[in-house]
Amino acid sequence: SDYEVNVNGIHHRFHNISEELIKFIEEALRRGEDLREIIKKVRELLG
């Protein structure tokens, strides 16, 4: 049904976003950045 496609589409989009965010955060932590600064950047990215 349309509803299922829609829900799956939304889930898929969020899954991709969270994968990208996790990579972004892991790389920043590897560079020794402060978690609070990383979260601030993530918030800015998400608008």
Rank of each mutant, 00 (worst) to 15 (best):
S1H: 15
S1Y: 14
S1L: 15
D2T: 02
Y3F: 12
E4K: 01
E4H: 07
V5G: 00
V5N: 01
V5P: 01
V5W: 01
N6Y: 03
N6A: 05
V7K: 06
V7D: 04
V7P: 01
N8V: 00
N8Y: 00
N8L: 01
N8I: 01
N8H: 07
G9N: 07
G9E: 08
I10D: 15
I10C: 04
H11I: 11
H11F: 08
H12N: 03
R13M: 15
R13E: 15
F14W: 14
F14D: 02
F14C: 01
H15Y: 03
N16V: 01
N16A: 04
N16H: 07
I17Q: 02
I17D: 01
S18M: 05
E19M: 06
E19P: 10
E19K: 08
E20D: 15
E20P: 09
E20T: 13
E20K: 08
E20S: 11
L21Q: 13
L21W: 03
L21D: 07
I22F: 05
I22Y: 03
I22P: 00
I22V: 08
K23H: 12
K23I: 11
K23V: 11
F24A: 08
F24H: 08
F24S: 06
F24Y: 14
F24L: 10
I25H: 00
I25V: 08
E26L: 07
E26A: 06
A28W: 11
A28G: 09
A28Q: 15
L29G: 03
L29E: 04
L29T: 06
R30A: 07
R30C: 06
R31W: 08
R31P: 01
G32L: 06
G32M: 10
G32P: 05
G32R: 04
E33P: 05
E33I: 08
D34L: 10
D34K: 06
D34P: 12
D34Y: 07
D34Q: 11
L35N: 02
L35V: 14
L35Q: 03
R36Q: 15
R36F: 14
R36K: 11
E37S: 13
E37P: 07
E37G: 11
E37K: 07
I38T: 07
I38N: 01
I38A: 03
I39L: 07
I39W: 01
I39E: 07
I39D: 05
I39F: 03
K40G: 10
K40A: 13
K41P: 00
V42S: 04
V42I: 07
V42D: 01
V42G: 02
R43N: 15
R43I: 11
R43V: 12
E44S: 13
E44C: 11
E44T: 12
L45I: 11
L45V: 11
L46I: 14
L46Q: 13
L46R: 12
L46T: 15
L46P: 10
